[in-house]
Design a protein around this nucleic acid. Structure first.
Lengths: 164, 164
DNA sequence: CGGTTAGTTCGGTAATTACCGAACCAATTG
DNA sequence: CAATTGGTTCGGTAATTACCGAACTAACCG
């Protein structure tokens, strides 16, 4: 395996994937990809990112702050060192965002169910109501699965941190 | 409940939700929301949508074709009637799109696992590899859950169609 | 055939987005 | 204090997007 080339390609894949998934600028996607690949151990500094991405300081700043606000990344600092070290957020935090999505979907579905219950008059609309309810059950199940997984990761992360 | 107002609000909610979720233009999101609320029974015509959305024919055309290409909606025709009747796709079809997303995520994860297996030299990177593998397990589970649900819906849809 | 209906295609434009450079601030160092 | 480092903020601009109107096609009707 050509490790260097593979690294580039994975970052690019991640970048595009995150860009679409989270609706973020291309540069933000690429930063996140880079942090997942390279930044897991020690984190990457602002400066390093400016070089690696060959982007301007202002763009890096803006997009780092965006990713921070979205809880996709975090940073830590070292005593006697003014630099921030950025790294991708824990998987449990990244997954938690899906729960928010699921919650917002649930709100819409519940309103749709209530609405349908008022308006469903003909048999065709009745079965439509049943469909929506079945869909709600599915979304609930997905939510539960995510909560379970997030808790798993939290356990893993705690024991990882203790080992450091 | 003020049904008319509630209808408007649900469409707006759906519109914004789909816009973000699928990365589609606002109008496309609103069309999809409208079709889910209003178009389930008999479908809505091109003309009706132009009026309801108060948008131009060209914009409606473009966005309907986009939604068709994405399998978010379908249309049927009636004998002796030149119009197309648009309706939201079955839930099974809409959910199938999530599977595509999961597949594309799996491809990246697998490449990341392979990459990590080559590059993981220090203990910290080893546990990182374990994290990614645990995440892969989770994504696989989500995929299975979706497949199960999609099959459920297919069953429901078949029996619904037989009752019509 | 000409007229109507249903929908598409093709510029064009207004609005939005992504990124940049330059000026700036705030903390530290000599 | 001045100089340096690490990062932010603020216009500005190039590129992209979302939508429009007008002209068009294709199928049918009388």
């Amino acid at each position: 395996m050509d490790v260097v080339k593979e690294r580039e390609e994975i970052i690019e894949l991640f970048g595009n994937y995150f860009e679409k998934l989270y609706n973020i600028p291309p540069l933000a996607g690429r930063i996140l990809g880079t942090l997942i690949i390279d930044g897991c151990k020690t984190g990457l500094t602002f400066e390093t990112l400016v070089e690696k991405m060959s982007a301007s300081k202002s763009s890096i700043s803006t997009n780092l702050n965006l990713l921070l606000k979205m809880d996709k990344i975090t940073y830590f600092t070292k005593a006697g060192d003014r630099k921030k070290y950025f790294k991708a957020a824990n998987l449990s935090e990244r997954l938690a965002n899906f729960l928010k999505l699921i919650d917002s979907e649930m709100i819409i579905i519940n309103r749709l169910v209530d609405y349908r219950e008022v308006t469903a008059s003909c048999p065709e609309e009745k079965c439509n109501l049943e469909n929506v309810k079945a869909y709600r059950t599915h979304v609930t199940e997905v939510g539960k699965l995510f909560i379970k997984t997030i808790n798993n990761f939290k356990q893993i992360e705690i024991s990882n941190n203790n080992n450091q």
